[in-house]
Design a protein around this nucleic acid. Sequence first.
DNA 1: CATGGGATTGACT
DNA 2: GTCAATCCCATGC
Length: 214
Amino acid sequence: MRAARAVRAAGRTDPGLPVSFYDRPVLQVARDLIGCVVSYGGASGVIVETEAYHDSEPACHAFAGLTPRTATLFGPPGLAYVYRSYGVHALLNAVCEPPGVGAAVLIRALEPIEGLELMAERRGIPEARRPRDLCSGPGKLTQGLGIELSENGCDLSRGPLIISERLERSEYPEVVVGRRIGITKAVELPWRFCAAGSRYLSAPVRLAGSAPER
DNA sequence: CATGGGATTGACT
DNA sequence: GTCAATCCCATGC
């Protein structure tokens, strides 16, 4: 199931997920990225929240077609799509599906595991005593890791910005599904994936007709 | 070339 | 709860 299973045999040296992992339906990748690890700039964290975007629905930047902005989205799978949000924040996505399809997974929150002091410093938080504030949002995590727009188009399987699988299957959390956050179009699609019960989400899981989780 | 709108966050009432 | 910051770029004239 997990495309990177073979990579695990290579040992502990944090190999990035292979391109084949991303060359699949974006909803599948979004779900499977929960529990994987993002590493950059001397810090890392476990992915606890993602959202899927696809050129077939209007909330996706690629819905507008191939433009300078969306070129990365339509490129080969496994690239980082980094763009500026609200003129302020850099948001990180993993490009999915074959070239010519505009699809990506937005990385929305991490549970910090390494470099907490560094993240706190980059975030302008006095101390790393509150790990919940370091990566609990798509703009927060890029700031914490030091990811800039210049990383747009880089290869996520080669680094320096890298997403890797965890070694133990048992470390992967249960995944719950909800509606995407902060969008005004296609709001009804249940394309947000979260680690069940995680305290590091950007917001509680919400789906029409169901009570908020935690 | 001018305009408007965000896949957000933090500060403030 | 409200709201501004700030910039890339799609769109339209």
